[in-house]
Every structure is written in C-alpha cells, then in structure tokens.
Simulated assay, not measured.
Amino acid sequence: MSERWVDLYTVCPGRGCNNETPSYWVHSVDSYRTQISNHGRIKCTGCSTVDYMKNWDFACSKHSGEYRPTSSISFGKALFIASNNVGMDDDFIDDLSRYLRKNKWDYGLR
C-alpha cells in the first residue's frame, strides 16, 4: 500500500482528552497545517517535519498549554469520531486502522 496524505482534521488525540470537536491541526512551531498518512505519520506542511504519530504531542482548548502524548487507542478513537471528514475516505481510514492495529506502541514508556 502506497503512502497517502490528508489534512489532519480530527478531535484531540491526546490521552485522556474528552474534546469531541474536530478541527484542523497545526504545528505549534510555525502554525502550518499538519497532515496524516495512512502509514501512521504526521507532517507539517510548512517546515516539512515528519515523524510517526506516536512521537507527537497534542494540545487543544480543553487543556491548552498542556501537550499530551497520544496512543494507538486514543488516536484510533479520535479518527473514528472524525471519520466522516472529507478527504479521509474509507480506504484511507481502513489503511490507517490496520496500521494502528499492527503497530501498537508502548505509550506507557513515552
């Protein structure tokens, strides 16, 4: 499966966050939008920083200023809630879900 990218539009994937209002996510370093790939990577459209989603932390209006790590479970839940987003077609969601199931990370060590 080839890697595909879409704008990251989802609810907050930070662990323990209950914010269920989806939004476009921006990179705190330069305020450019971020994108997510079906291979579990996130990139900044400005500075081109690319890393696996498990290495990103997230802050939203419910816990502004406090960046929270994510996990395969919390990210999967966030994507499920926002799965009706235009741009995240069923194939993209299926590919990313498969990635999350196969590549669970040990978020307790993060």
Results as ranks from 00 to 15, higher is better:
D7R: 15
H27M: 06
I93M: 12
L109K: 15
T10H: 02
Y32F: 15
V86F: 05
W25C: 06
Y52A: 12
I42V: 14
H39Y: 13
P22T: 03
N18G: 14
R110V: 09
C44V: 00
T10R: 01
D94R: 13
G76Y: 02
S74Q: 12
C12L: 14
S72Y: 14
R98I: 14
F80Q: 10
S74C: 13
H39P: 00
W105S: 11
R15Q: 13
I42H: 03
R98H: 11
S83Y: 07
M1A: 15
W56Y: 06
E3W: 08
G16D: 11
C47F: 10
G40T: 03
D95N: 07
I93F: 09
W56F: 07
G87E: 01
M1Q: 08
E3K: 13
Y99H: 12
T45K: 10
Y99L: 03
S83G: 06
L79R: 09
A59Y: 00
W25L: 13
R98T: 10
G40R: 00
E66Y: 05
R68C: 12
R33G: 04
M88Q: 04
G46Q: 05
R101W: 08
T49P: 00
W5I: 01
D30S: 09
K77R: 08
F92L: 06
Y99R: 00
K104W: 01
L100G: 12
K62F: 00
D94L: 14
N84R: 12
R41P: 02
V11D: 05
K62Y: 04
C12P: 03
C47S: 01
D30R: 07
D106F: 11
A59C: 14
N18E: 10
T45I: 08
L109M: 02
Y24D: 10
G16M: 03
S97Y: 04
K104P: 02
L100V: 14
S71Y: 09
V6H: 07
R15L: 07
K54T: 06
G76W: 00
T21G: 06
W105M: 11
M1W: 09
S83L: 00
V86Y: 05
M88F: 09
N84Y: 11
R101V: 05
N38A: 06
